[in-house]
Design a protein around this nucleic acid. Structure first.
Lengths: 228, 228
DNA sequence: TGACTGAATTATGAATTCATAATTACGTTT
DNA sequence: AAACGTAATTATGAATTCATAATTCAGTCA
């Protein structure tokens, strides 16, 4: 008997939260659009009750906004919010870097090392998609490596909030090469378990990422150019 | 016509989230207790639908845990979670300190100065309740002073999660005097707008607070002694 | 023609109902 | 009497229904 795979997803609303969240993040449900309750119910094959429960949860996460008697709309991530989010993300990543240095074992580090190599390869091949994936994996591995579930949960929530923006924005060549060099430095710090140093670099890395994003955004918070 | 007081609380579930949250924080609904859906519905005079919606939201905040087909229980804050939460809180307060130095105007600072004086007076009078209140006001003012709603929201959520613990634990005399001296230092940094310095102090302050808490807690996460 | 009024339609929040899982109560067996 | 199994009861998740707010649309009048 395999005990690790028991109980997949008990409740409908949990499943719905997950699915709706993805629809928002993947930009299938677009900002300011009102959520088509009826259609979603039909396509998911559920009644309104669990779907509305899911919307309440997503609202508390800030992914949708509820208007009394006027239903739900997909939240628009304003430039201001973006500018507010990144410093917080940066602070959490700094902490994650410090904790990861302390808690990751050699095996954990070498796994990140692998992903790092893949990321460099993707850069060499100018494969943006593979780069994004490897990059995200590295960040997630560092967050997980911190072994702090509270940190992980809050980071996850913040990242979800801006991931659409990250998804949409085209990385400039300059920023890309800069990010690569920052990652190289981060790996060096991780290797010698320089907690404070890694934390500092991760904070800076995130701050620079924000600067690049803001530069790429118009004042309306929508990207000047869409991703190809 | 007074436009500032229009629209109090449009939806039932929002009101319920608020009320239930308070019941948890004020320790009226106690950890591990199962949430008496029926009773609450009756005492609030609402049906199960909005109450259950509220529970879903509180679950996503981590204040209650939902068990499939077994209803909701008030979440227990384990020692481990406490130990995970404080570093994150510390990181956020550090950031808040830095931002508050940058963004608070002279008036904002002098308001904090007032509260600080009240806090010192409460300490002199050994008035724990007044101290707690002034202390909380100061922290909230610094958080608000950072002028970053994302930071504020996440801080609020984290603080809510551990506030019960803070509420329950008796402050030791040593820790109290230590906290006072930390606060004095913080005020000095704020006065001269030393952003990095204030941030550092606030981080340390929070870290020390954790240490005091953990010392006061048994391994089960419940306080050794209740507050009078 | 265009703005306004009010009825018809639709959408939304909340109550109620329903099917089923979990718990309790009870009886049987050893 | 204790342990097990089964029926009755209760609690829970989700669908449905209902009342009302918002929106749409047709008709009227300037």
């Amino acid at each position: 008997m395999n005990l690790t795979s028991s109980i997949q997803r008990p409740t409908l609303h949990e499943e719905l939260v997950e699915r709706l969240r993805n629809l928002v993040i993947e930009d299938i449900l677009k900002p300011d659009e009102k959520v088509p309750e009826k259609e979603l119910c039909e396509s998911f094959g559920v009644s309104r009750t669990p779907l509305r429960e899911a919307l309440k949860v997503l609202a508390s996460e800030g992914l949708v906004v509820l208007q009394a008697n006027r239903g739900a709309r997909i939240a628009r991530v304003t430039r201001e919010e973006l500018e507010n989010t990144f410093p917080v993300l940066a602070a959490l990543e700094q902490l994650a870097g410090e904790l990861a240095c302390a808690h990751l074992d050699d095996e954990g580090i070498s796994k990140i090392e692998e992903r790092h190599a893949e990321m460099l390869a993707a850069y060499k091949a100018q494969d943006r998609k593979a780069y994004f994936q490897a990059n995200q994996d590295i960040h997630n591995a560092l967050i997980s490596g911190a072994q702090n579930d509270v940190l992980k949960a809050h980071h996850r929530r913040l990242a979800a909030r801006v991931s659409r923006a990250r998804f949409m924005v085209n990385l400039s060549d300059e920023r890309w090469s800069e990010a690569i060099s920052e990652h190289k430095q981060m790996m060096m710090r991780l290797r010698c378990r320089d907690a404070v140093g890694l934390g500092q670099l991760m904070k800076t890395h995130m701050t620079n990422k924000l600067a690049a994003h803001v530069k790429a955004l118009g004042s309306d918070g929508e990207p000047r150019q869409k991703q190809t």
